[in-house]
């Protein structure tokens, strides 16, 4: 595979991360402490899972903005159901339940998109509102603070413990495995299965994909179903880590996740994007969001800085591509 174009983007993001880390580390040495690194990892768990789903959609040439609503739906409904009917349920039941709900909601997106051939942004903008509205109207709009005991236990579980100099301990949460597994599976899927190649094919040349014999509706159901599934899992993880289920959480962060994926080199026109790039993109966004405070920059400025990084990070490769294209167009005389 020739990844020279992507490699450029990925290297650029990686360099930005390194540079940023060095600057923050010099100004505030706290940045390089284990505690901070564990914090950063914890902060990327949920966004990382979301990002894998969003990556699939963007490669296929679509866009999904409803995944946060799917996550909230699955999270809130699962907690409410378990609280009502099976408080003692083990954590994996919660994951399965939320994942299944997410999958179902994802299929609703897929149905509209593949059956009626509607633009993905329109459909998911609609379902974002529908799903979230349904949660608030029909399931509940109050914050649930008493979580099933398995959630509390899950929140306390630890993968690694590092003693701190002040006598406390810093813990790494095992949920990071969910993100790692999601990333690994997505990578294997995209690069080594025909289904994954179909996702790229759909984003690269939709008509040709159909002619070549890819089953486009199946691929679409797969994509939007997977986004739903991952969102359900991400939602329940979010609730467990935060020890509460708030129906107003998560929704509104869709653009952050999409920005991370785009920063990682996926193009909104489809056909391009890699898991490595997305992981780097998520890392960059999380580090930015969590570290500006270490620099003494007010949190309100985070969004401004993030915006600048998005424009620089996605604008530069795009400009390069434009220039290259212009050059080849002129030499080919198509103009």
């Amino acid at each position: 595979m020739n990844l020279s174009f992507l490699r450029k983007t990925e290297v650029l993001v990686a360099l930005t991360i390194v540079l940023f880390c060095i600057i923050v580390g010099i100004i505030n040495p706290v940045f390089f402490t284990v505690a901070n690194v564990f914090d950063l990892l914890r902060s990327s768990i949920v966004m990382g899972i979301f990002a894998m789903g969003v990556l699939l959609v963007i490669i296929s040439g679509g866009i999904d903005v409803s995944f946060t609503a799917v996550a909230v739906f699955a999270m809130y409904a699962t907690v409410k159901l378990l609280n009502a009917y099976w408080v003692e349920a083990p954590m994996w039941v919660a994951f399965i339940l939320a994942g299944a709900m997410g999958l179902g909601l994802g299929f609703i997106n897929a149905f509209f998109i593949s059956r009626f051939n509607l633009p993905t942004l329109i459909v998911t903008l609609g379902t974002l509102s529908m799903f979230h509205g349904f949660v608030l109207f029909a399931i509940g709009n109050s914050i649930i603070r008493s979580m099933p005991p398995s959630f509390t236990a899950f929140a306390r579980s630890t993968l690694l413990e590092v003693p701190l100099s002040n006598g406390g301990v810093s813990r790494l949460h095992p949920a990071i495995f969910l993100t790692v597994v999601a990333a690994l599976l997505t990578w294997l899927l995209l690069d080594y299965t025909m289904l994954g190649r179909g996702v790229y094919a759909l984003g690269g040349a939709r008509e040709a994909a159909g002619r070549a014999g890819f089953n486009i509706p199946r691929i679409q159901y797969f994509i939007y179903g997977t986004v739903g599934l991952l969102s359900g899992i991400a939602g329940i993880t979010y609730a467990a880590l935060g020890r509460q289920a708030n129906p107003q959480d998560i929704v509104g962060s869709e653009l952050n996740v999409i920005a991370a994926v785009v920063l990682g080199g996926a193009t909104l026109t489809g056909g391009r994007g890699t898991v490595i790039g997305t992981v780097l993109g998520v890392a960059l966004v999380v580090i930015m969001n969590n570290s500006l405070i270490l620099l003494g920059i007010p949190t309100t400025w985070q969004r401004v800085v993030l915006g600048v990084i998005i424009i620089l990070g996605t604008g530069m490769p795009a400009l390069q591509a434009q220039r290259a294209q212009r050059r080849s167009q002129i030499t080919e005389g198509i103009a």
Partner: peptide, 22 residues
């Protein structure tokens, strides 16, 4: 066909071999 039914985002190798794999 006039548009060749190729995938611009795939490599030369994958474009040639894809149909066979499918």
């Amino acid at each position: 066909y006039q548009d060749f039914s190729l995938f611009p985002n795939f490599t030369v190798a994958e474009n040639i071999a894809l149909n066979e794999q499918l």
